[in-house]
Structures are given as structure tokens and as C-alpha cells.
Design a protein around this nucleic acid. Structure first.
Length: 162
DNA sequence: GCCAACGTTGGC
DNA sequence: GCCAACGTTGGC
């Protein structure tokens, strides 16, 4: 029997890569994660089929812009080996790549972004990690009930994206 | 652009 | 193993 699907929130700066970019490309490799906790979530816990809240950080306003789905499990992030990449890490080698990435596919763009303020206003979402002061994790787990609530706030039906 | 909060580095 | 210094994140 397959393990239960998990839910995540992943941050991206829309000036760098937005939900619209993902929609155009249909899928992307989630490169550039350079935080051990975030890497460990991707490497150890993300499985094909997991659903992702695509969060626009450093945006005006910041918030959840849509949904993605994990379509390939963790593998080495080769940008760490590339001296010309902004994500280059001189410690990384082919045998010890240090950093990992997953691939995600486009699922849906919310008709209306669910802003950070919207999330804060929802009593039922008050325990979400993204709302906790000082939480900078760019890859974080989300509870199913929170995921489903955000989808509804975004104007979509859960059954339509699963 | 500011700056609080956090993660990482490196001297000891 | 401690912790000060530094770099980064990300909301504002």
C-alpha cells in the first residue's frame, strides 16, 4: 500500500520563478535550495504525487499563488557544481553533491492569490509554519487540513486538483 | 532600503 | 562545544 500523500509549501521569488513560469514550462527542477532542513525534507520525505502550495516570497503582496505536484523524487542539484551558477557551492563534488532537488509539475494557478494577510486572518490556519515569526524555511511541511483550506481560499475545489 | 530573525562559519 | 561575527531571508 502506498504511503499517504503529503503536503508542502515551497517558496519562490516570482521575479526569479513564478507560478506563471511554471505554468508555461509545465514542470521544473527545484534547484537552488541551500538550507539543510529544507534539503532533508526534499530528500527524505517528498514523494511523487505530493502536493505543494506554491508561495511567492519577496512579492507585493506575498502569498500562495497556486498548486504544484512533486513529479520526480530527490536527486543531486547539479547547479551546486557549476561555477557560473548563482547556486554554486565550492564544497560540492560529483560524489558528494551535498544539495538535492526534486522536480515539480504545474497543477493550478489560483484565480486569486491567497495573500499572507489572508492566511493570517484565518483562525483555522494559525498553526501554519509559514505564519510563524522568523520561519524562513523555503520548503516546509503543511498539514492536509491547512492545505485544503488554502485551496478553497484560492477559489479552487480540492477534488479538482487531486 | 531597513532590519529582525535565523543559519552557518570558524576561532578558541 | 561555545559563541561572536557574518550572511541570508523575507516582510515591511
Amino acid at each position: 500500500m502506498a504511503a499517504a500523500r503529503r503536503y508542502w509549501l515551497m517558496k519562490s521569488e516570482p521575479d526569479v520563478f513564478s507560478i506563471d513560469d511554471l505554468k508555461r514550462q509545465r514542470r521544473t527542477s527545484w534547484d537552488g535550495v541551500r538550507n539543510y532542513q529544507a534539503r532533508n525534507f526534499m530528500r527524505d520525505d517528498m514523494r511523487v504525487g505530493d502536493l505543494v502550495l506554491f508561495y511567492h516570497s519577496n512579492a507585493k503582496p506575498p502569498g500562495v499563488a497556486g498548486i504544484a505536484r512533486v513529479c520526480k523524487e530527490a536527486y543531486p542539484d547539479h547547479t551546486a557544481l557549476d561555477p557560473n551558477s548563482p547556486y554554486h557551492d565550492p564544497r560540492a563534488t560529483k560524489d558528494e553533491p551535498i544539495w538535492m532537488m526534486v522536480d515539480v509539475a504545474y497543477v493550478a494557478r489560483f484565480p486569486e492569490q491567497v495573500t499572507l494577510d489572508d492566511l493570517r486572518r484565518e483562525q483555522s490556519l494559525k498553526d501554519m509554519l509559514v505564519l510563524r515569526k522568523g520561519t524562513r524555511l523555503s520548503v516546509q511541511p503543511v498539514e492536509r487540513r491547512h492545505f485544503e483550506r488554502v485551496v478553497k481560499l484560492g477559489g479552487l475545489q480540492v477534488k479538482d486538483i487531486i
